[in-house]
Simulated assay, not measured.
Amino acid sequence: MKFAKPAISVDDQLDLLKQRGMTVPDEVRARHYLQHISYYRLRAYWLPFEGAKQGDAHCFKDDTSFDDVLSLYVFDRQLRLLVMDAVERVEVAIRASWAHHMAMSHGPHGYLDQQHYSKVRHHASMVDSLTKEFDRSRDTFAEHYRTKYTDPTLPPVWMAAELMSFGLLSKFYGGLKSRAERQAIAKPLGLDEKVLTSFAHHMSHVRNICAHHGRLWNRRFTIQMIVPRYPARLAIAMKGADSRNIHNTLVTLDQMLRIVAPGTTWCDRVLLLMAECAFANPQAMGFPEGWEQQPIWKAGQVQEVGQ
């Protein structure tokens, strides 16, 4: 089938939305956001407001307003910022735990020794990727190492941990042959090594979605994380949740933040954000029935905070 949809102007986009039953309280404001966000990006946020299909397009449910759609878009944007805030702190902690363990157990460059990894071919590919990332880096420490040292050509593990992508870091961690080593790296973070391996892979996927400003709140993830057996607080919170949505990501980030950032109020900020948007349906985010009564969501008092 040949694509034959024509491009349409912002004014025509607005007319089309009104023809489909969307109310537009402020047309100047609506044109502004269609211009600066785009019709196509906003489309993902009015899908929950669509009703029966008439002809080639769905009509909107009664009383659907452009402001409602914009409210959901703003909620998702703020959720991405909160998730990225948590991911940054958790990611840094994972990098630190991996680098410290490898340095103390195998020396500054022991992480490059293929005997520590279960698949030699995969390790070679990881080292090749790291070499490319190191050669591209313009960080002061990378340029200093390249200028001063010729052997080994790659930097010590504590430098490598700072310059490699998180996706590559998760491969170095998950590729370790010894479960005891993976467990030693995971222990300071409060998770079993299998859960941390799974979550690191999943978190890398979520991080990429956030970095590209993708829709997060009701997304169905293709890369899911393992549901842990412990800590019990985390396992109980995930019972009945849809593992393909954001709920399990949020509670795992919260669990890890409580370890790496004691006193954090991140969970309260998530709750406050959800309470402020009437259209942020928890069910669409994978929240289980009765989630409000779970200890993980009742741990702190909801308040407007900046930590």
Rank of each mutant, 00 (worst) to 15 (best):
R136Q: 07
G286A: 09
E162H: 02
F66Q: 04
N281G: 07
E292T: 05
L272N: 07
A44I: 03
A96C: 04
A52I: 09
G107R: 12
F66G: 02
P108T: 00
V120T: 12
F166Y: 15
A235V: 06
S9N: 06
K53N: 02
G21F: 14
P48T: 15
T197Y: 03
V10F: 11
I246Q: 01
A161W: 03
R29T: 01
Q13L: 02
S97H: 04
G190I: 06
R146H: 11
Q115T: 07
I209L: 12
A30T: 06
Q78P: 03
S170F: 10
S198Y: 12
A86C: 11
R95D: 04
E292A: 00
K2D: 05
T264P: 07
S125P: 00
A30K: 05
T252D: 02
K171E: 11
P108C: 01
K298E: 06
S97M: 11
Q294E: 06
P25L: 15
T249P: 00
P228E: 09
D254T: 00
L70K: 01
M225E: 12
T131C: 05
S129M: 13
A57G: 05
D139A: 05
Q13F: 02
G167Y: 12
A180P: 00
N245V: 08
A161M: 03
M225K: 04
P231S: 04
S105T: 04
L130G: 10
R89C: 14
A93E: 01
G174C: 10
P6C: 00
E27H: 05
R179T: 07
M84S: 14
D151G: 09
V251L: 10
L72K: 09
I226P: 00
A57Q: 07
L42M: 10
Q54R: 12
